[in-house]
Amino acid sequence: MALKVGYFVKEASTNLRRNKLMTMAAVLTAAVSLLLLGGVLTLGDFVSSITRGLENRVEVSVFLKDSITGPQRDDVKSTLTNLNVVRGVTFVSKQQAFDEFKDLYRDQPALWQNVDPDVLPASFRVRLDDPKHVDAIRSALGSNPSVDEIVDQRATVQRLVRFTSLLRTFSVVMIVVLLGAAVLLIANTTQLAIYARRKEIEIMKLVGATNWFVRLPFMLEGVAAGTAGALIALVLLGLGKTVARSQFPAWIPTIALHGVAFGQVFWLVILGVTVGALGSAVAVRRFLEV
């Protein structure tokens, strides 16, 4: 078939102009669903970069019993430094712990004014090569009589990760529903366009136009709507990221909020095109059965 690009483009743009409102609804639905998708992708990147950052900052605190003697303390310290997963060990004395506590709650002096500096335990703060290796410390010191408790903050980090993965699951469901709505709206728009031109289609079929020739302008229309939705979503996503970036304190790594990643552009456009093509193909199918 000799493809007449000009013909197809002309037909598609005429149809789009004829059904402005429906087209707008379709484009916006596609845009919203794709924006949400872009948001979820960004959120994923952002959360994993933050989690990684937090995990690397996580220290393991080995709290010591008050009854500990100097040699016992040296023993614990050498056990720690001899573990090859340990990157560094810092001793925090009771006084230092109290000072930190004071500093942390400097706005609420009532919390520490009547506290004896001696009630807080001394501890070793241990940095690990990988936060997962906290178990090595537990097995090395868990039964040591001078160690009171070994505390790591992984649980906190994991709760954050679990929460965000829940959020992601929920968003994916939303995205699927919205993409479905976009497909239906594009199908509806296309159906109106087809209805307006059913006589033309009848004649085209009659004189022997191939199904693809009939179908292509309508599919092009759907694809144009889907792509427009994707582009709107990308612009909004970029703006949203810029705004979000300024909202975070400096220590949070916001690398995921810089620009729009190629992967995101790729997926949004691919999905926009797919949604448009699918919607119009669904609509046009019924009319080709002659």
């Binding site: 078939m1 007449k4 004649i203 004189v207 022997g208 136009a209 191939t210």
Partner: peptide, 10 residues
């Protein structure tokens, strides 16, 4: 002309 255009005549 439409009848020819839609069957791909140039």
């Amino acid at each position: 002309a439409f009848a020819l255009e839609v069957i791909g005549y140039s």
